[in-house]
Design a protein around this nucleic acid. Sequence first.
DNA 1: TCCTCCCGTCACAGCTTTGCCACAGGGGCC
DNA 2: GGCCCCTGTGGCAAAGCTGTGACGGGAGGA
Lengths: 214, 214
Amino acid sequence: MAIELALTRQGHQVATAATGEEALELWQTQRPELVVLDVMLPGLDGFEVCRRIRRTDQVPIILLTARSDDIDVVVGLESGADDYVVKPVQPRVLDARIRAVLRRQGNGVADIGDTAVFGDLVIDRAAMTVTRGGVPISLTPTELKLLVELSRRPGQALSRQQLLRLVWDHDYLGDSRLVDACVQRLRAKVELVPSDPRLIRTVRGIGYRLDPPR
Amino acid sequence: MAIELALTRQGHQVATAATGEEALELWQTQRPELVVLDVMLPGLDGFEVCRRIRRTDQVPIILLTARSDDIDVVVGLESGADDYVVKPVQPRVLDARIRAVLRRQGNGVADIGDTAVFGDLVIDRAAMTVTRGGVPISLTPTELKLLVELSRRPGQALSRQQLLRLVWDHDYLGDSRLVDACVQRLRAKVELVPSDPRLIRTVRGIGYRLDPPR
DNA sequence: TCCTCCCGTCACAGCTTTGCCACAGGGGCC
DNA sequence: GGCCCCTGTGGCAAAGCTGTGACGGGAGGA
């Protein structure tokens, strides 16, 4: 069938079933990475196959069908399918949808969300946690905010005034050791050798910069 | 807009942006569970917004558009979107697709279907029950809602304001001990040692976070 | 070499933030 | 109508964070 050919061309390994029962058997024996199911199958229809697979397995399922009724889409998705595609479909569209589903599947556990990595320093901006070599570092709110702002602009020198505005949210114009003091406290917790900072570098006459390693 | 209304009716909490820039800002401040993006936006278009969000965040994104060109679908999905829906769309179809994407998103550690597991704490969001070590814990409606919202974003720090919006549904700007009080009551029931919380962690200067164990 | 800024460092006092508690109003259920 | 549970508020104390000013050292320029 045309779809099988197209998927094979796109580099997927494909096994095909002619009936719903056959599909279930294939799924059990082959344990595929992803299932593409036509709804109109002899024997068990696609919805039913989908539901049976879902009873025990979280394998990604894409329903494929010529029926484009809204109600079918809803029923299909509520049977546990991950996507519902209406035929006719361009091979590359199907491929894109397959990859979207697989992509989502891929990062199930170690979800690298809003995270920045500098050497062995990991800044998780979603959890608002910082670890070095996997060991959590306890930072105060201001230190954390400062580090986050620096990490948003890696390798870019930020003036004290910019930092005051970003972190402290006030336009200080006078001379102040405020930023320096906070940077010092941050270095004490974050740098391996605080007296020889490798991450938070001083830019003389300007301010500070968070260096990406190497 | 019609879609917002429909989604609200379906029980979702909705925040709307008029431009791409606004969307990015909303995403950053509100940390939604899912983003629905129209491709045709003034300013940055949906593809670009999608790509920018994807640089740092794995939040589910559904692209919504009147353009049904195959190439658009492919471009959209390759921008990192999880689904691509062509307008006009029936509200319940959109809802089904939203729920499919959310279901697919293996949220955190041992999230089976609508159940979240944190150590020996099991939150069944379908049954709206919570057990610890198999023993049911009786929570008040507000406590339950708070725990559910936290469990939907495991490991992510949520500000008091975000929690007020999610759980209490009001935009409080002033200082309030409301969230703290509820967290304290929740901890008393949920934590093994309430004075040394392991699940609901305080993020000083921010708010709270539900930690996935280890 | 010397001088001049600029930056690192430190300690402390004030203040913000949070945990905890008690209480009263209100809503729901009998 | 009465009772009970839930919920929001205010207060209090403790913990911990933060900003400031002074001082010394070091880097860079003359």
